[in-house]
Design a protein around this nucleic acid. Sequence first.
RNA 1: CGGGAUGUGGCGCAAUUGGUAGCGCAUCUGCUUUGGGAGCAGAGGGUUGCUGGUUCGAGUCCAGUCAUCCCGACCA
Length: 472
Amino acid sequence: MNIKIEDKDFDLSDLAIKADLADYSPVRGCMVIKHYGYAIWELIQSFLDKEIKRAGHKNAYFPLFIPESFLKKEAEHVEGFSPECAVVTHAGGEKLEEPLVVRPTSETIIYYMFSKWIKSWRDLPYSINQWANVVRWEKRTRLFLRTTEFLWQEGHTAHVDEEDAQAMAKKMLEIYNKFMKEVLALAPIVGEKSASERFAGAADTYSLEVLLRDGKILQAGTSHYLGTAFSKAFEIYYQNKNNELALAHLTSWGVSTRLIGALIMGHKDERGLILPPKIAPIQVIIIPIYKNPEDQELIISECKQIKQELEELEIRTEIDADDQKTAGYKFNEWELKGVPIRIQIGKRDIENNVVEIVRRDKKEKLRDISRQGLTERIQALLNEIQEFLFQRNLSWREENIYTADSLEEINKILNDKGGFIKINWSGDYEDEIKLKEICKATVRVKALEEPNNKCAISGKDAKYKVYIGRAY
RNA sequence: CGGGAUGUGGCGCAAUUGGUAGCGCAUCUGCUUUGGGAGCAGAGGGUUGCUGGUUCGAGUCCAGUCAUCCCGACCA
């Protein structure tokens, strides 16, 4: 890798490839997730899977192929997804009687099964989660943010009534929010989508919107209250306590490998990736520095000793003992890859019974850190970095929430700074269109406050206070 | 899917009016090096994305195709 990284403003593809997270595949819009990137996904999975199970959901697996007719059963759903479906028409050397859709999401096939499994109020709430790949033939792709095939988790639940279902949709939203704050150190704005931004077929869509370092906004997770539209389409009826047939109320919720995009773009700086400790595949990188073979042996054995001590505290540690590369090269490379803490040990340090520590988040060099109590010091520092990154992301978000009362103001703010703008909005679709055409911005989520002025787009009476911004 | 750009050793790039492909980094060998991307000397590596066409001759011109990037319309 031959790159000078001083003051380089990385874009996402630069970073994803140079930090060795992913590579392009020969198929348009698809990516290979390399081991360093996949390790991040595995960590995401292990944290979230625990939370999802704690919330009472069990994992299952549904097929990749969905009969085309299933997609067509729910009107809005088919309208939303048909254009981006990959369809298998031939298999086994023959034309299929009914084409099979490669799942863009699994509502239809899961609810088809729900209708067979749910018969009584005693069966409810019913829930399933699956970790799977899905395919959406997007016009424009971008590594991690929008790839043709991506990995995700999708949860589906059925409930006796709206109240119960809404509570679940919100509970899962809060689990995502907590995960993003505590593990990914990202501070999303959480709220309800406008009608036009809803999931195809949903009654209500809630989402988590992350402000990235480039000022753009990323929808990083969603949770939907689906109402009874799918239940009608797939005949998910149950017998209630009054011995009547009733429609189940459904929810679905998911997060994808896009979270890795949020992670990259939410924390990066001019030197590359910055990974919060909890999600970093390597939390501590140890770099031995030596001039001759005698020192080398001594120093490496000290590195191994430190690695072992750190691993006893379950701190993910690696030693970069590659003697083909100079120390300086390694410093830059591991910074590019976002490892939270680097320990440097040379002969000097061993003689003085100290090490040098460099923290990635603040680019701060801590010299002469005592070897005694080092592991505890590192552990505390990892927590400190985790907290620092969250606080930094939170202030970044807070500092970039603006208000505006006209399209001109909105445009100026977005051109100069990006970020979120809180505006009053009439709630009319035509105003959303206007906002998009003139400012290239969309309504991200509704704010909790009540509107306190006329609509910033049209001057009509405002119905909502909303956050808007330019999104990926 | 529309507009624009690009595609040349692993990576980044060059090659004038068409004349048979060159540089830097990386790689290999040797010696010296190693606390912020090492130095010197030598060596290897290419059907120029792919397919076809024009031409005595194509990296260069033409057509098609595939991929990537930027801008729109579509989206987690």
